[in-house]
Simulated scan of single mutants.
Amino acid sequence: MRAICVLFALIVTASARAAVVYDFTPVTQQINGLVQVTPDMNGASLVVMREGVVLYENQFGSFTPTTRVPIASASKWLSALTIERLVERGEMSWADTVGQYIASAPADKQTITLGQLFSHTSGLTHVGDACLGDHQNFSLASCADEILATPLENPPGTAFAYTGNGMQVGGRMAEIATGKAWAQIFADELTTPLGMADTRFNFGNANPQIAGGVSSTLADYSNIVRMVAQQGQWNGVTFLSAAGIANMQIDQTHGVPMTYAPDPFAFGYGYGEWRNSVDAQGTAIQVSSTGTFGSSPWVNNQTGVAAVFLTYSQDLDKTDIRLLWANVNSVVTDPVFSDGFDPSP
């Protein structure tokens, strides 16, 4: 009996001694450097998690853990996840068409699907309509009508053109499907159940900018990437199905030409998220939703890392975001063990 106890104690001791340490010094140095040299970048923050455990969190410059900033196109992921909740509950389908909800839409827009609207393959022009962000003169309904009245840039489903117009129409379809205002749908389906009290649309709710009008905090958005990395699980409860999360990461452009794409290095686009890297079978390894002001949430399915870089800068070089992804990946794939050896077989 004593021998068994001694063996157990040795195993526990070895496990404790084999604690993993990550050296995030290169990441810290990079972000400090960006804050110092980027003229309009007053600060930033970063959190890196694996399996729900925080590996690294730091604030830079004037940023604090509760700093809330406009996240621009990082809003797209949030809005797409909101729609996915409705899809999984059977209130909508990604295959639903504009004509099913907006009978007055012009004939050439009637067959555009909800999925095309959220994967930038609807054929709608990539030039943002003037109604986007106009909260005084438009409702979401009237903004969607104006967008649908504009000439198509391409036949639906034949080209990828990154635009906020499509998601604006998709948000209006969700309002009609649920009988609720988009801001209420967003709160009911996303921010409330995920505990994101400081995440909301800017400038009121009359005409929320579905694809780019959200402000959020590091803590709030970290809940999103953590849930996605855990294949839809949130605090032991299924928030979204693993199949739904995977479907959102499939290349929903289906390989059509990219006529306008701010990320020319991506391997297609899912619903509300870029496919930054893929494996030999085309399955997404990393997905992200970087905004024009520099905020970048991402999930790496290969390493299990979920991360959020939060900042607000119009001068930040977006290649620095890719370098940040690479630096974080290098750190988490090259751990140091506190006792000097890796106990894994």
Rank of each mutant, 00 (worst) to 15 (best):
M1H: 14
R2S: 13
R2Y: 12
A3E: 15
F8P: 00
F8V: 14
A9E: 07
A9T: 12
I11H: 12
V12N: 01
S15D: 11
R17I: 13
A18W: 03
V20F: 05
D23F: 04
F24D: 07
T25A: 14
V27G: 01
V27F: 03
G33P: 06
G33V: 07
Q36K: 15
V37Q: 15
T38H: 05
T38K: 03
P39A: 10
P39H: 09
M41T: 08
S45G: 15
S45T: 09
S45Y: 06
L46V: 08
V47A: 12
V47N: 04
V48L: 10
V48C: 05
E51I: 00
E51R: 15
E51T: 06
G52P: 11
G52N: 12
G52C: 09
V53K: 15
V54M: 10
L55N: 10
L55S: 07
L55M: 11
Y56M: 10
E57S: 11
E57D: 04
F60Q: 12
G61E: 09
G61L: 04
G61M: 07
S62V: 14
T64N: 05
T64R: 14
R68E: 14
V69Q: 10
P70I: 09
A72R: 13
S73A: 13
A74T: 02
K76T: 10
S79L: 07
A80K: 00
L81N: 02
L81G: 00
T82I: 07
T82C: 15
I83K: 00
R85L: 03
L86F: 11
V87N: 10
V87R: 14
R89H: 11
E91S: 15
M92P: 04
M92V: 10
S93E: 12
D96G: 08
D96L: 05
G99V: 04
Q100G: 14
Q100R: 13
Y101K: 11
Y101G: 09
A103D: 14
S104V: 12
P106Q: 10
A107V: 15
K109V: 06
Q110N: 08
Q110C: 07
I112C: 06
L114E: 05
G115K: 01
G115P: 04
G115H: 02
F118V: 08
F118E: 05
L124D: 05
T125C: 01
H126L: 08
V127I: 15
D129I: 02
A130L: 11
A130V: 11
L132A: 03
L132P: 01
L132K: 00
G133F: 03
G133E: 03
